[in-house]
């Protein structure tokens, strides 16, 4: 019982990280692809938007890791061994993204170089995070009778596969979509808004195509996961819901309803991650480690839950205050 609740908490934290930290990576992606006569102003808007908040957003990832090793220590040990390489690449991305972002501000002589490092790291990191996540769903991490990872499979076969690759691209596209839609609310310059609107529409198309392509690849490369998403009892309603949120994002962007677009794109990301979690359930690592297999004792799980529940009344108001103070509308 408690292990399912904590598994749910992990998914919720992952959703919040996607909506906050994911969008920061997306901002870096749009820095990389800034173009046209307003390229510099696009970059300035991006930098201003994420400057005060990215460190706080980033902490959701740390919370996620801590929850994983406290509540599901066995899964943490297996994942950090079998997925050593993508996780290490992730860390390089995280370190370079964060440092280059501050260096860019305080080292004007090399601003251009730091900007590039920041932008490229912002692309690589969500790609690796997406691949890591998909690698837990694909069935590549095989577990033996003793509950140990079969390390004779090697350190590449666990993640360097078509399905994780597609999922990585999907993660990047989703981050880019979130960022582009959020950025619409970070400026009142009509031309700049049109730039971000075009980018949001492009990203929305990319997310749609990649979502279908990822599912298609999953059917052969991650059969259990692919089947759950397409053939299980909840698959059709889920697909319809995902389609509806995607279309609503399009509609809002098309009609320039930017406040509604922000809401819709958040809903789309949440629905997509829910689909992933449902297809994964009841496994943490498909197919060898279930939530129950990896869970710590009930007492620890319950305690962790109550610490989280007790801490949120402190954390959430502070988090929202930070957002409100530095929102664009407050700065005008």
């Amino acid at each position: 019982m408690w292990e399912v609740i904590l598994g749910g908490v992990l998914v919720v934290v992952l959703m919040i990280y996607t909506l906050t930290g994911g969008a920061d990576f997306g901002g870096g992606v749009w820095d990389l692809f800034a173009s046209g006569p307003r390229a510099d102003r696009q970059r300035t808007t991006i930098g201003k938007a994420i400057g005060p908040i990215w460190e706080a957003n980033h902490v959701w990832l740390i919370i996620l890791i801590v929850l994983l090793f406290v509540c599901f220590p066995k899964a943490f040990a297996i994942l950090s061994t079998a997925l050593h390489l993508p996780l290490t690449l992730c860390l390089f991305g995280i370190v370079l993204r964060g440092s280059a972002f501050v260096f860019r501000k305080y080292d004007p002589d090399n601003r251009e170089a730091w900007r590039r490092v920041f932008a490229i790291a912002s692309l690589v990191t969500p790609m690796m995070l997406g691949m890591t996540l998909a690698a837990t769903s694909g069935g590549y991490i095989r577990i033996d009778q003793q509950g140990r990872w079969m390390h004779q499979d090697g350190y590449l076969a666990t993640w360097l596969q078509p399905f994780p690759f597609m999922a990585g691209l999907l993660a990047v596209a989703l981050c880019a979509l979130l960022a582009a839609v959020y950025l619409l609310g970070e400026t009142d310059d009509a031309d700049l808004r049109e730039d971000f609107r075009r980018r949001a529409l492009t990203a929305a198309v990319a997310v749609g195509i990649l979502a279908f392509a990822t599912l298609g690849v999953a059917l052969s490369n991650a059969p259990h996961f692919g089947w759950r998403l397409s053939g299980s009892a909840w698959a059709i309603p889920f697909q319809l819901l995902a389609g509806a949120t995607a279309l609503s994002v399009f509609a809002c962007l098309w009609l320039r309803r930017y406040a509604a677009a922000k809401f819709a794109v958040g809903a789309q990301a949440v629905v997509m991650l829910s689909g992933w979690a449902l297809a994964q359930f009841p496994y943490l690592i498909v197919p060898g480690v279930s939530i129950a297999d990896a869970a710590a004792s009930e007492k620890i799980l319950a305690m962790t839950f109550w610490i989280l529940a007790g801490g949120m009344p402190l954390l959430l108001p502070s988090f929202f205050y930070l957002y409100r103070v530095f929102s664009f509308s407050a700065s005008r």
């Binding site: 801490g311 402190l314 954390l315 502070s318």
Partner: peptide, 19 residues
Amino acid sequence: GLPFAMEGFAFFLEAIFLG
């Protein structure tokens, strides 16, 4: 896990207020 979870919260608040 207890100190790590509490550290997570404390660091979170530190990052927010430092922002």
